[in-house]
């Protein structure tokens, strides 16, 4: 009895120590570290490498926010969360922000009391099938066995799609992506469905990726983005505008290579100047210093660089920009003006 009290007191002091009040920004600054919820391992988006360092598209956003707020891209505690624990972890204050390929939906934004602060990846649910099956459209899948990774919106989309097309299917819910792959490759299910980005990432790891096709139908909209607790708008603004800064940086041609040069003195482009803090006081308005965006871009690069480095066409994941190209290139990625 006594012992557990001791342990609680001790561990409470030594291990947790964290305090999550109303003002997340102050907490993060006081702590000197930001807690960022990520997925438990999805290659390209958030996965620990062989040395245990977290890498990926979602991870880069955490690092960007940490460098904007704390000036150190490594001042992040990555908290791996399952689909089940992610919202509780956020609302109970265990993490300061969630960057865990989470789909922005109405009920999550309202009923679960979270705030989505933007979209960093436009995804959609697709199907992958072996070529030898001869399937060319998802509408041919009548009676098929479908592997799904549980705990996401994918189950609901799948049910809606098959219902709307009035065809039958048999769902096989699987806990992790790795196990779903195993089932799929062994033929225990005919098709595998998850977000198209995930399908591409999964297919990239197969022995013979060309033996599998990704069907043309995208059956859902999956805008993935970071989210924060409802009600702390200052913190929400920081996360939102850090993401926007990365996006705007690509549009304006600011890269991690030239950000030091561009940000050293005011240049010709006033928007670059405002973004990098050489003109105006945007940083002050969100409670940070003038160099916040400069640090974020210097730490992880602009949106395009992050994309290319983690999930772009030269990586094993090999995703094309597609919808995620800048609006100037026909995509949907668009940052509001910095002024």
């Amino acid at each position: 009895m006594k012992k557990s009290v001791f342990f609680g007191a001790l561990a409470g002091a030594a291990l947790a120590g964290g305090v999550a009040g109303a003002a997340t920004l102050d907490d993060v600054k006081a702590r000197g570290k930001m807690n960022c919820g990520v997925s438990t391992g999805l290659v390209g988006f958030a996965a620990p490498d062989a040395n245990g360092n977290w890498e990926g598209f979602d991870v880069a956003l955490c690092r960007a926010v940490a460098s904007a707020v704390l000036g150190d891209a490594n001042a992040v505690e990555f908290v791996p969360l399952t689909t089940k624990t992610r919202f509780t972890a956020l609302s109970s204050g265990e993490v300061d922000m969630l960057s865990r390929n989470t789909t922005w939906t109405f009920s999550r934004d309202t009923d679960l009391k979270t705030d989505f602060t933007g979209i960093n990846y436009y995804d959609g649910q697709g199907f992958m099938a072996p070529k030898e099956l001869g399937v060319t459209s998802a509408k041919d899948l009548d009676g098929a066995t479908v592997c799904i990774q549980t705990g996401t919106t994918t189950e609901l989309n799948l049910a809606d799609f098959f219902r709307a097309n009035n065809i039958s299917y048999e769902p096989v819910p699987i806990e992790t992506n790795a196990e779903a792959q195993q089932q799929y490759l062994a033929g225990a299910c005919d098709v595998y469905t998850t977000d198209a980005s995930g399908l591409a990432a999964t297919r990239a790891t197969f022995e013979d990726p060309t033996a599998h096709v990704i069907l043309p139908e995208i059956i859902s909209k999956e805008p993935l983005g970071p989210l924060v607790r409802h009600g702390d708008n200052e913190w929400g603004d920081i996360v939102r505008w850090t993401l926007n800064a990365l996006i705007a940086a690509e549009e304006l041609g600011i890269t991690s290579a030239n950000v030091g040069e561009l940000g050293s003195a005011a240049g010709d482009n006033p928007e670059i100047n405002r973004l990098l803090g050489t003109e105006g006081n945007l940083g002050e308005m969100i409670g940070l210093d003038a160099d916040w965006a400069k640090r974020a871009i210097a730490a992880v690069g602009n949106y395009g660089e992050i994309f290319e480095k983690n999930i772009g066409e030269n990586t094993p994941i090999g995703l094309a920009r597609g919808l995620n190209a800048q609006w100037t290139n026909g995509g949907l990625i668009y940052a509001p003006p910095f002024r």
């Binding site: 342990f7 609680g8 561990a11 409470g12 291990l15 947790a16 964290g18 305090v19 999550a20 009040g21 109970s92 204050g93 265990e94």
Partner: peptide
């Protein structure tokens, strides 16, 4: 409300 306790604990 203002504290977080480590998952391990």
């Amino acid at each position: 409300p203002d504290s977080t306790v480590d998952l391990f604990l």
